[in-house]
């Protein structure tokens, strides 16, 4: 398993597209937010605001998911591990772990940089009370797990379709459907079940981050199990 993680990491670090996309995401966010007052907010207020404005970032990160995972299927490079006698589940798990780390890197890079910048420039904004560090840690973990849940859609699409086109296309379609549902009549109800909605609820404090952690974990686990079941018996061409 260690070797599989190592090789996935090796591939990620040498993937120019990832680093270019990371830079583009920071740039796009800077352009979008440059006209507003975001950078005059305190660190805490920036945190509260930013995750609700990350829709485009999440979509761009999902596209990368399609490239990172779908390309391995399309080019057949994923098969090196299988023909070398590795367990399919371990191959999938290693790929998933590195992919989700990469995805979180893309989604969280700008919020983290923004929070650091705003805190250094304008201060944290509210008194740092006892237990706040745990709350912030929970918020961070909830974000990570909810992002994982969103990323797992790309992983499942990759495993089912095994090409770049559909691995990028299907999650984007689902993404738009989720956005539509979250702008509809039952938006609040849907937000409690859809990872992208839960991100907003956790950010604005409507629900405790533990719920976000729970929802993110459940979605991630369910989607991974389905992916694993499909991949375990998949005919790889």
């Amino acid at each position: 398993m260690g070797k599989l993680l190592h090789v996935e990491w090796y591939k990620l670090v040498r993937d120019k597209i990832y680093w270019i996309l990371l830079a583009v995401i920071v740039l796009v966010n800077l352009i979008i937010l440059s006209g507003g007052q975001q950078f005059s907010l305190s660190g805490y207020s920036f945190l509260k605001n930013i995750m609700q404005k990350e829709v485009i970032t999440i979509m761009m990160a999902s596209i990368y998911g399609g490239l990172f995972v779908g390309r391995d299927f399309e080019d057949g490079t994923l098969y090196h591990e299988i023909t070398a006698g590795r367990s399919r589940i371990q191959v999938l798990l290693a790929k998933t772990i590195v992919f989700l780390l990469a995805l979180n890197g893309l989604i969280l890079i700008f919020p983290l940089l923004g929070i650091i910048y705003c805190t250094l420039k304008n201060g944290w904004g509210i008194p740092f009370t006892a237990g706040m560090e745990f709350y912030l840690l929970f918020v961070f973990i909830a974000f990570v797990l909810l992002n994982c849940a969103i990323g797992m859609i790309s992983m499942l699409a990759a495993v089912c379709f095994r090409d770049v086109g559909r691995t990028i296309g299907i999650p984007i379609i689902l993404f738009f459907i989720m956005i539509m549902l979250l702008n509809g009549k039952y938006a609040i109800q849907y937000a409690h079940f859809l990872p992208i909605g839960m991100l907003a609820l956790v950010t604005n404090g409507t629900v405790h981050p533990v719920y976000g952690m729970l929802l993110g974990s459940i979605w991630s686990a369910v989607l991974f199990v389905i992916s694993a079941l499909v991949f375990r018996q998949a005919e790889l061409r």
Binding site: L4, H6, D15, D75, G76, T77, Y79, A84
Partner: peptide, 19 residues
């Protein structure tokens, strides 16, 4: 089955790590 964005040496290095 090759990693197209990598060099020949990097392809083999990935294979070496994996193996």
């Amino acid at each position: 089955a090759l990693y197209k964005n990598m060099t020949a040496q990097q392809n083999l290095e990935a294979q070496r790590i994996q193996r």
